[in-house]
């Protein structure tokens, strides 16, 4: 089987700083891959480089046989990527409805059906549908951001730290949501919360100092305390 998404020795700069210095990873259709690593290792930059928000300075990024490496962000997304950023990326000056509308790449019946379906999933959003997004809570923003990634028929969804800054009870809700659509979607998840990573992930990659240093199945990592200590700086009980 060919990987759906393949990064081959990708590097990128933010300003003068060489952030990614050789990230390689493969994501196969239907699986959920977790990217782990310490703060500042380059996890978020990896997602932003895939999208093209940070231009790749070397290596190759291939999605479903399409070369994304030199593509501007508005085109990479159109190849079938849903992006849920760290700060949710919700537009305050738009209503909830408009936040979904602006994300819809097409306004055909299929997309509208998908939107209605997503709204059934997130009842909170349905209730505040006509309100400005500035009135939403952090958890609701996260839901809206995920919903936005689901309105298009995306091949893969990139999610950046969905549990960050949310109350534990909301985190559980987010986790359940991810588990629900994990059945149908390919996911790349950046996550610091190890519990969340274990619950959702099938396989993992560890990034350190801008390079992928290790990968394996989530189960291997869960069983190996030495590995956790070395690369993540903590141990699960």
């Amino acid at each position: 089987m060919n990987p759906l998404l393949k990064l081959d020795n990708v590097s990128s700069f933010i300003g003068p700083f060489h952030i990614l210095q050789g990230v390689s990873l493969e994501v196969y259709p239907g699986e959920a891959v977790v990217i782990l690593g310490r703060n500042g290792a380059g996890k978020t930059t990896t997602l932003r480089t895939i999208i093209g928000l940070v231009p790749a300075s070397g290596g190759k990024i291939i999605l479903d046989n399409v070369d994304l490496t030199a593509m501007p962000p508005y085109n990479t997304v159109r190849q079938g990527i849903g992006f849920v950023p760290e700060d949710y990326g919700i537009f305050d000056a738009l209503t909830v409805e408009e936040n979904l509308l602006i994300a819809m790449l097409q306004e055909d019946q299929e997309t509208l059906d998908r939107r209605d379906h997503v709204l059934e999933l997130f009842t909170d959003l349905k209730e505040s549908y006509k309100r400005f997004a500035s009135t939403l809570s952090g958890g609701q923003r996260q839901m809206l951001s995920i919903a936005r990634a689901l309105v298009n028929d995306n091949k893969i969804i990139l999610i950046d730290e969905p549990s960050k800054g949310l109350a534990p009870i909301i985190v559980e809700k987010v986790r359940d949501t991810l588990l629900t659509f994990k059945q149908k979607k390919t996911i790349v998840l950046v996550e610091q919360n190890f519990e969340m990573a274990c619950a959702v992930g099938d396989r993992f990659y560890i990034i350190a100092e801008g390079q992928t240093v290790l990968d394996g199945t989530m189960k291997e990592l869960m069983d190996d305390e030495e590995l956790q200590r070395k690369h993540l700086g903590f141990v699960t009980a």
Partner: peptide, 13 residues
């Protein structure tokens, strides 16, 4: 939307 975050607008295609 762009007033708040041009990057995010781009990331929506």
């Amino acid at each position: 939307a762009g007033i708040q975050s041009p990057d995010m607008v781009q990331a929506l295609g």
